[in-house]
Amino acid sequence: MNEAALVLEQIRTPMAGSPHVLDVDLRIAAGEFVALVGPSRSGKSLVIELAAGLVRPEAGRVVLLGHEWNDTQESEQTPVRLRVGTVLQQPGLLSNMTLFHNVLLPLRYHHGAMPERSREQAVMAQLERLGVAPMRDRFPAELNQGEVRRAAIARALILDPEVLLLDDPVAGLDAEMVLALKACIEEHRAHHPLTVVAALRAFSPLIEGADRLAVLQDGRVVADGARDTVACAVPEMLRKYVE
């Protein structure tokens, strides 16, 4: 088995707005694409936030790229953050910057020595890949939800991360755009060893590209494995999330 990119070991932590407790034990290998599926309030977003080091669990440990979040001060997190691209449910594009400058920001901040022309070319290539290049000079408030999300994914991918954490990446995307996103992720995975963890609240073509599905319900993983295996293993009421 490949080295683990993400380990959530014996995690137990309360879920806001739910009487249930997140109780998971997940190991995701480097280069693997895992889709977390399940109904709302099942704990998918919390898994993403734990993996991103935004939430500390009450019990258990989270290890991302060999780095344990519990042991790390905020100021020491930057080297790991540069290896991880994250898009949360609220993508958080900076409202005072155009879409182009939002995607350019991580490059400008972390790769100051890179020629400006190369940075701009990299940004445009990423925007074109995700179909938002025509909106490059618009501000986030002028874009629709799908465009904002695609721009946020472009921003998350701009530093060529080793791990991509996506919370509800297909929200607001039309069918064509979901396929474009799927193609974009596949293209990235073909060229770089990219680990993808995507939380999905409904069945989506993105699931077809996943190596593994983890079905969550009320804070627990009720099925975990390849799509065909999971489809047989999950309770009837959860089957619609995987088929």
């Binding site: 540069l82 949360l88 958080g92 409202s95 920001l105």
Partner: peptide, 22 residues
């Protein structure tokens, strides 16, 4: 305040951009 609500501050942290410095 608006940046905090719209999670722009969290997004900056996730990009490894120091809130204090930037």
């Amino acid at each position: 305040g608006n940046m905090s609500v719209t999670r722009e501050v969290v997004a900056l942290r996730l990009m490894g951009i120091s809130i204090s410095r930037f």
